[in-house]
Design a protein around this nucleic acid. Structure first.
Length: 328
DNA sequence: CACAGAGA
DNA sequence: TCTCTGTGG
């Protein structure tokens, strides 16, 4: 099982940052943060991303190091967080731990009854992005005046929806399944060195001569985050089979195979839980308080100033150069 | 998730 | 050629 199978089906092309100027990108916050939580932590000594009390703050370093890329190219990010997470700001510490333990229990239960969707969803909530990380990331984004909001369920699906209805020009994510969720244009490698990579839904469907529904079916045959694929079926065979039999059911019947919870997973990709009342929760005109952010990161959360100084400098420089502050 | 090497 | 598995990030 692997989502990377989708890469060989997707229509991808590099786009220079210059072409992205002035655009709005709905960023899958979980995906974006995860990148820093796995890489930053790996190459930095413990004391630099952990407070004296052992609280992980690698996410703060990640935010400060990652945001300049957007600002320098006059790209406005809107971070979309996964839903289902309780509003941590207003809850007691005990409640948070209880919620996490309950989520862990529900995850176990979901796994036992074979509910992959629920298990994956709860796993994302209980593992990498701890309560503190969720909270401090939001706080820092607020101080930097960077827009964000919570999705009802998958941030990826919500970001795809925002892109589809035209409230964002692109989705920002490394994942290929934004394609399945219907994101018209996904930017990959937005944090990496070179030019980003554009994954285009319409071009993909046109090149493959498939409908989105058929693409979802093909992906499910290969295996997704929410279902195991059919052994022996990779992207090539999946395409061939979907073309031969029309849809998932046709293929499964012809090969006498079965996919657990196929109906649910299929429907989940086709019509995921999303919300439409998000635009009034943020303002696209960004006016960061860099000094306050510096204090928040280095003093309140004791992050080694050397780890974030360059990032803050770049943010300050970009404010002047890209006209992000033109409204102020 | 990317890449590489084994195995069919 | 295509799929699967393992490793590293």
């Amino acid at each position: 099982m692997g989502n990377a199978d989708l890469r060989s089906l997707a229509t991808l092309r590099d786009v220079p940052f210059a072409d992205l100027e002035g655009s709005v990108v709905a960023v899958d916050a979980h995906n974006w943060l995860y990148r820093y939580l796995t890489t930053t932590v790996k190459w930095t000594s413990d004391e630099k991303y952990t407070t004296g009390e052992g609280v992980e703050v690698a996410n703060l370093i990640g935010v400060v190091q990652g945001l300049p890329k957007f600002f320098e190219h006059d790209i406005t990010p809107v971070f979309v967080f996964d839903g289902g997470v309780t509003d941590l700001k207003s809850e007691e510490v005990a409640d948070r731990r209880e919620a996490r333990e309950k989520a862990e229990e529900r995850k176990q239960a979901a796994e036992e009854r074979g509910d992959a969707i629920e298990a994956a969803r709860l796993s994302a909530q209980t593992q990498r992005l701890t309560d503190t990380i969720q909270e401090t990331t939001r706080d820092l984004l607020d101080i930097l005046d960077v827009p964000w909001y919570d999705a009802p369920a998958e941030g990826e699906a919500q970001a795809a929806h925002q892109n589809a209805v035209g409230d964002a020009d692109y989705v920002g994510s490394e994942d290929y399944d934004t394609l399945l969720f219907g994101a018209p244009r996904t930017l990959r490698g937005l944090t990496s060195k070179g030019d980003p990579e554009l994954m285009d839904l319409d071009a993909t469907l046109a090149d493959l001569d498939l409908t989105r529904e058929q693409l979802i079916d093909a992906a499910m045959l290969c295996g997704t985050d929410f279902n195991a694929g059919i052994s022996g079926i990779g992207p090539k065979t999946a395409l061939k089979e979907i073309r031969a039999h029309g849809d998932l059911w046709g293929v499964l019947e012809a090969r006498d195979e079965h996919i657990e919870h196929a109906e649910r997973v299929r429907e989940f990709f086709r019509n995921p839980p999303v919300r439409d009342d998000y635009t009034d929760e943020y303002d696209l005109d960004i006016d960061p308080d860099v000094e306050a952010a510096r204090a928040f990161v280095t003093e309140e959360w004791e992050v080694d100033a050397g780890e974030v100084e360059r990032g803050f400098e770049r943010i300050e420089e970009s404010l002047v150069q890209t006209g992000l502050d033109r409204w102020t």
